[in-house]
Design a protein around this nucleic acid. Sequence first.
DNA 1: CGCTTGACCTCGACCAGCTTCAGCCCGCTA
DNA 2: TAGCGGGCTGAAGCTGGTCGAGGTCAAGCG
Lengths: 120, 120
Amino acid sequence: MKISEASRRTGLSISTIRYYEQSGLCPTISRGRDGQRQFNAHDLDWLLLLCSLRETGMPTAAMQEFARLYRRGNATVPERKAMLIDHQARLKERQSQLDRCRDLLTKKLSRYDEIIGDQI
Amino acid sequence: MKISEASRRTGLSISTIRYYEQSGLCPTISRGRDGQRQFNAHDLDWLLLLCSLRETGMPTAAMQEFARLYRRGNATVPERKAMLIDHQARLKERQSQLDRCRDLLTKKLSRYDEIIGDQI
DNA sequence: CGCTTGACCTCGACCAGCTTCAGCCCGCTA
DNA sequence: TAGCGGGCTGAAGCTGGTCGAGGTCAAGCG
């Protein structure tokens, strides 16, 4: 599939996809003889993974590192696993942060109801 | 208390606190006759709220709006409540996003274990 | 054949959200 | 009275990620 369809399917903009490839966030996309990128299912999977990672705050440098490991072959599987596990842990931490914020907001809101006063 | 202590207690840098005040993210901090900011408990509460909101992705423009409403007095309490409730909803949405990412990672990881192969 | 469409590239602009810098002031201690 | 720590200001700088402009090229179509 072409870049426009990859864009539609992933929600990434065309510019962003090109930027990701050029920055080595994903393996190089193969080209047709006209020089156009040809995305296959595997490429799309990568992009979708990148979407998830980006949405959840992984910096591009880490994604670069991940892709770099991938290019070095199966020997790096343990390192790649470790990276994903790390990220999962960060997500967990992040979720409790969100929980704490929700609690705080709930408290603030209940104070509005009690006092309807001139506080925050 | 002085700005250095406010910084210590909130985890915000001194520069950030000044930047927040100057951008109207919190009410104006009162000054001593030497021109130095004097933070009271109320101010600290604001800063801590800002911390939570920032950590959870509220854009500063929204915090500005919130502070603007606060300065307009109690008549704006319903709007302020609405803002906080909105943010809570966004946090919920965000948490399910994180959940989806965790699921995806779990899937990827289990594939590593199954196949130990040359996939993402 | 020429038009349109959609791809390609490079490179610089943009944005949020700080951070740093330069230069000044105040109060305290030695 | 000099030096020092810590505060003040405004403006400039930085970073990570994204977008846009400008210009080219290839495929498809009437």
